[in-house]
């Protein structure tokens, strides 16, 4: 039945995946094994994304399934802890920009890929990024922005990290509609993610998850 569950997730059959989870739980299957099957499925979905078979909709759908299955399964494994997180990411849309969809998608994909994400919202001033980082100790700071005004906000935010003496302790990544490698260089960030999954993969690489 685990194989069936994995197949349902990988082939985007949401209802079936949820029914199978219920059946497994009724049959007293080990909840941790169910979650492992989900993780393996997510890896498979990730591979299909890399090879260009799957796109953002499948990543989102797989994430949705994983969320729902986790919600069903997690109450059964209370006390066993949540397991080690893959890394900590501080995420926000930079000053002046209030767009949240790109940020939310990245946050969601990071979450379902095992990262601890702290989303500090939109229109976040550089000082607020630094304050949050001091409290949260992220491995990676991820800045989102759709508008060209975000170029300077990103630069100012990286500068604020430098000024606070925190720049060397974190990796900084940027992403959004008009972002590019040139803007990563301009702002002093370490990289620009060309899309949400590219961002997740870069962060995985940096945090040694891959």
């Amino acid at each position: 039945m685990f194989d069936k569950l994995m197949d349902a997730i990988i082939q985007m059959r949401e209802e079936e995946a949820l029914e199978l989870t219920e059946k497994l739980l009724e049959a007293k299957a080990d909840p941790v094994t169910i979650l492992d099957a989900c993780t393996k499925s997510m890896e498979e979905v990730g591979k299909k994304f890399e090879s260009g078979v799957y796109f953002l909709p499948e990543l989102m759908m797989a994430g949705e399934m994983l969320k729902q299955i986790s919600e069903k399964v997690k109450p059964m494994i209370q006390g066993q802890g949540e397991g080690k997180k893959a890394g900590k990411v501080l995420l926000g849309t930079v000053r002046g920009d209030i767009h949240d969809i790109g940020k939310d998608i990245v946050g969601f994909l990071l979450d379902v890929n095992g990262f601890e994400v702290k989303d500090i919202g939109i229109d976040v001033p550089p000082e607020a990024f630094v304050e949050e980082a001091e409290a949260f100790h992220p491995d990676v700071v991820a800045m989102s922005g759709l508008l060209t005004l975000a170029y300077d906000s990103m630069k100012d935010t990286v500068d604020a990290f430098k000024k606070a003496g925190l720049r060397d302790g974190v990796k900084i990544i940027i992403g959004g509609g008009q972002m590019s490698d040139k803007i990563a260089e301009y702002s002093g960030a370490d990289a620009c993610a060309k899309d949400a999954m590219d961002g997740v993969n870069l962060i995985k690489k940096w945090t040694g998850k891959e």
Binding site: M12, E14, L56, P57, M60, M61, E64, I101, D104, I105
Partner: peptide
């Protein structure tokens, strides 16, 4: 965005 991507499935 999220809604319409999920609606495809």
């Amino acid at each position: 965005t999220r809604g319409v991507l999920m609606d495809m499935f």
